[in-house]
Design a protein around this nucleic acid. Structure first.
Length: 579
DNA sequence: GCCGTTTTCGGCCCGACTGTTTTCAGTCG
């Protein structure tokens, strides 16, 4: 039987944390399970392997006890403590703790005192007016439970999340509206949107102003804020027309830095930051930094002042993920920017499923300041758009050469996004691939093979000497489809061995590789390419999202291959490697 | 349950909001 994935191992620890929490364990013990689950989920290597090698305690937050539990899970398929607790707390009770406003304490009392053991039973009890009979519960608590059950019935377990570009579009319109108000001195988006996350649950907007009432009024009047659910001193909550919740917070300019830092998060970053500060007698909150020794609170107008007061280098928002950025001795890397990119190595034209011609795409890339653009239409077996047969590709190469000769100021490269067949070979012959300047190999078909076979398939493609880059390496679609089961550590190893580049695809629902694995690839010496995968001129701008993922991976310009001039990059292609 | 410039025990971020309370527990981010 295949080893459990990191996600499955993390899920088991999260469940055990939930069960211990219901059982009344102290909160720190529960937090320890969740911290360990996060470390496992974000690990770029297969944690099951670490457990077998006796190395799993190298992960931060995993100690002897959790090592034993993970070992039991691998050897027997279950954790004894979880088995025992499941007998006391049925799955329905755990499910109750996921409802808005219901936590472990309330769920346990509903279970013990009303015999409720499922969401259905909870609804029946609430509708019968039995919940309000419990001490500490009242009519409002009962109504809130019914509302939470309705919300759960509508959206299921996962709260709806919006892809980053859609959320930022709302944020930018709100910010523009707020900045037009004379009462607003500064307005910024905070939260996961500012950190460049793949998708967001809600927007946090923070404002510096001496007149919060005027700001709240301006906020409520914005078209981008459809309905204001509640307002009050220092803030308001609205809902954008597309359903995105928007939280507004307003403070005087003197503490804007504290507020922006606090609401940018991440939560884990802030917890770590505050724990370290406490050891030095400092207490950090959105209101300022309290010094135990003097009793003084330092208020900061900028975030830079917050980090400086704590003696820390300033971490860019994308790096605030509690992945070592607060460790002693950490130095802020100079993160790659969109302006560093000198070319784009993945786009489509009307030859396959794109909407523009070679020339239109090239002119748009030149307009964006690029020095080169690779035209990489899909290959024949792909199945989307027009089939690009070998003969059609030969004609396409001639067309590219013709456009390249005619246009000044942009190098147009002949390429392909060649399909990786189930056996790992590209679906054009080598003598044709040899004529191309740039070959991206991608998996588009036969997703459902075992992890072992998929890994062999992709490693074989990476090892092909005429494959320059692996496109969207995992095939994930954010919020819709997990990646194919593939051992990325083996893929990264093969790429490091062969000099093949790995792509960070900039389509906003791909961003594939993700930040964790992009970091692991760079650490292994693999070059990353940040591509738009544009299908029309406007979506060349999608490189922006690849750059954000790269920044979350702490990539510098030196770790991104398409920051190089084409001549330098061409010389680094795998086909030029010897030995 | 983890961890150590308070190191093998005794701590473990901070505040807002809500509903039920007469001073606070639970939940959330």
């Amino acid at each position: 039987m295949a080893d459990p994935t990191n996600s499955e191992l993390a899920g088991a620890l999260d469940e055990l944390g939930d069960l211990y929490e219901l059982d009344g364990a102290i909160v720190h013990r529960v937090v320890a399970y969740r911290t360990a689950a996060k470390a496992i989920r974000e690990s770029p290597v297969a944690v099951a392997g670490l457990v077998r090698e006796g190395r799993v305690t190298e992960l931060p937050g995993v100690g002897k006890t959790l090592e034993e539990k993970l070992t039991a899970l691998l050897e027997t398929g279950t954790i004894p403590a979880a088995e025992k607790l499941r007998a006391t707390f049925p799955a329905g009770v755990v499910a109750m703790t996921k409802l808005d406003g219901v936590g472990p304490k309330k769920a346990r009392r509903l279970h013990e005192e009303l015999g409720v053991d499922s969401l259905e039973a909870l609804r029946a009890a609430a509708e019968a007016g039995r919940v309000r009979e419990l001490k500490g519960f009242g009519p409002k608590a009962e109504a809130a439970i019914l509302a939470a059950l309705d919300a759960h019935a509508q959206r299921g377990d996962a709260a709806p999340r919006l892809l980053l570009p859609k959320a930022l579009d709302v944020a930018e319109r709100i910010l523009a509206g707020l900045r037009a108000s004379p009462a607003v001195e500064r307005a910024e988006v905070a939260g996961s949107a500012r950190r460049g996350a793949d998708d967001v649950k809600d927007l946090d907007i923070v404002v510096a102003s001496e007149d919060p009432a005027a700001v709240a009024e301006a906020f409520a009047a914005l078209d981008a804020v459809g309905a204001v659910q509640r307002g009050g001193a220092g803030g308001a909550r609205g809902v954008a027309p597309n359903g995105l919740a928007v939280d507004l917070r307003v403070v005087p300019p003197a503490t804007f830095g504290n507020l922006l830092q606090h609401f940018t998060g991440s939560k884990e970053h802030n917890v770590r930051l505050r724990e370290q500060a406490v050891r030095r007698g400092l207490h950090v909150s959105e209101h300022g930094i309290l010094d135990d020794a003097s009793g003084e609170t330092t208020r900061c107008a900028t975030e830079e002042e917050v980090y400086a007061r704590l003696g820390l280098p300033y971490p860019e928002p994308e790096l605030r993920l509690d992945r070592g950025e607060l460790d002693p001795g950490w130095e802020a890397p100079e993160l790659v920017t969109l302006a560093d990119l000198r070319g784009d190595l993945h786009c489509h034209t009307v030859a396959s499923d794109g909407l523009a011609t070679i020339e239109q795409m090239a002119l748009a890339a030149r307009e964006r300041g690029h020095a080169y653009l690779a035209i990489t239409d899909h290959s024949a077996t792909h199945g989307f758009g027009n089939d690009v047969s070998p003969d059609a590709l030969r004609r396409q190469i001639e067309l590219v050469r013709e456009v390249d000769a005619r246009l000044e100021g942009i190098r147009v490269l002949a390429g392909t996004e060649v399909n990786v067949l189930p056996d790992g070979s590209p679906d054009y012959a080598d003598d044709l691939l040899e004529q191309l300047d740039w070959v991206v190999a991608s998996v588009h078909t036969a997703f459902r093979m075992s992890a072992e076979r998929m890994t062999e398939r992709i490693v074989r493609a990476v090892e092909h000497p005429l494959v320059d880059a692996l496109g969207h390496p995992t095939g994930r679609l954010i919020g819709r489809r997990p990646g194919y089961g593939v051992d990325l550590a083996a893929v990264i190893d093969a790429a490091a061995r062969t000099g093949t580049f790995l792509e960070i695809n900039g389509q906003p629902d791909r961003r594939d590789l993700d930040d964790v694995h992009a970091r692991a690839a760079a650490d292994a010496g693999v070059g990353l390419v940040l591509d738009s995968d544009a299908h029309r001129p406007e979506t060349l701008a999608n490189q922006r999202w690849a750059v954000l993922t790269a920044r979350r991976a702490a990539l510098t310009a030196g770790e991104v291959a398409n920051t190089l001039a084409w001549d330098a990059l061409e010389a680094r292609r795998p086909r030029h490697r010897t030995g």
